[in-house]
């Protein structure tokens, strides 16, 4: 029988631990496929975050680091300065990148650090059980905003892609979503462009990916995709924010 679809060899055969309908697994596969297609697996190192993707080092079959919460861009900086000829990516959630690690991500961009960041925005802290993230939408209920996020109390959600696009060191910044096939195709294309920007030595690159967390949103996988399309995309416009 002809094989029409198989696991990319840049992923190990360890089964993902992610919940049904989670976006992390989809993005892992895309990142791995891009690494494979660009022929860079032997010179690539990844940095896993603290968050649901904490075990990414078990899944990507390349040299991997696990960083402390939010520090992945600093760790990647250390790696990349030692091996400038190699490729380095960080994979981070919105608590990791947009809250505890804001200083590290802003300054990696500001230095034009030649790394690629895959940023999973699921509007929540997945791993710790659904607390509010800086990206949580106004009115969205989480375990630490039980009545819905109140902007007078804790502000409005932060738009990371737009913010980082204002920084001169950024070479490629895009936001995509996982809610339908067309957006999946665009997501993978953006990931590829981000790695290509790094390979060309242009500077810092990041793809913010709107991704479902059915478990902590209290929705079925299908409902979660609809909620993402109806609520997240209007607040977080998709597209390429910067390309040099």
């Amino acid at each position: 029988m002809a094989t029409i679809f198989k696991r990319t060899s840049v992923l190990t055969d360890v089964p993902f631990h992610y919940c049904p309908g989670c976006g992390h697994g989809i993005v892992h596969r895309m990142v791995a496929e891009v690494i494979d297609e660009l022929g860079i697996r032997e010179k690539t190192a990844g940095v896993a975050p603290v968050g649901c993707a904490v075990f990414a080092y078990n899944y990507f079959d390349v040299d991997m680091y696990e960083a402390a919460h939010g520090r992945a861009p600093a760790v990647a900086t250390g790696y990349k300065r030692v091996h400038p000829e190699n490729v380095c990516f960080t994979y981070q959630g919105d608590g990791d990148l947009a809250s505890i690690g804001t200083a590290e991500i802003v300054h990696a961009a500001h230095r034009g650090e030649k790394i690629t960041t895959i940023f999973i925005n699921n509007a929540i802290y997945g791993m710790t059980g659904g607390q509010m993230a800086p990206t949580t939408l106004v009115g969205q209920k989480t375990t630490t905003s039980p009545l819905g996020r109140d902007k007078n109390h804790c502000g409005e959600p932060i738009r990371i892609a737009e913010m980082l696009a204002t920084i001169n060191g950024s070479a490629f910044i895009a936001r995509t979503a996982l809610n339908n096939t067309a957006n999946l195709v665009k997501t993978k294309a953006a990931i590829k462009k981000a790695f290509e920007a790094q390979l060309a030595g242009k500077g810092f690159s990041l793809v913010e990916i709107l991704s479902p967390c059915p478990t902590n949103w209290g929705k079925s996988p299908a409902e979660a995709m609809d909620w993402l399309a109806d609520n997240m995309i209007p607040y977080y416009p998709l597209g390429i924010m910067k390309e040099v």
Partner: peptide, 26 residues
């Protein structure tokens, strides 16, 4: 070699982590 002024001591030690993990004397 490479000197880099980090944005904080927190970032600096994590850069050390990255560089040490990459095999450097750091």
């Amino acid at each position: 070699g490479c000197f880099l002024q980090a944005e904080s001591e927190l970032a600096a030690i994590n850069m050390v982590y990255g560089a040490a993990g990459a095999g450097a004397r750091v």
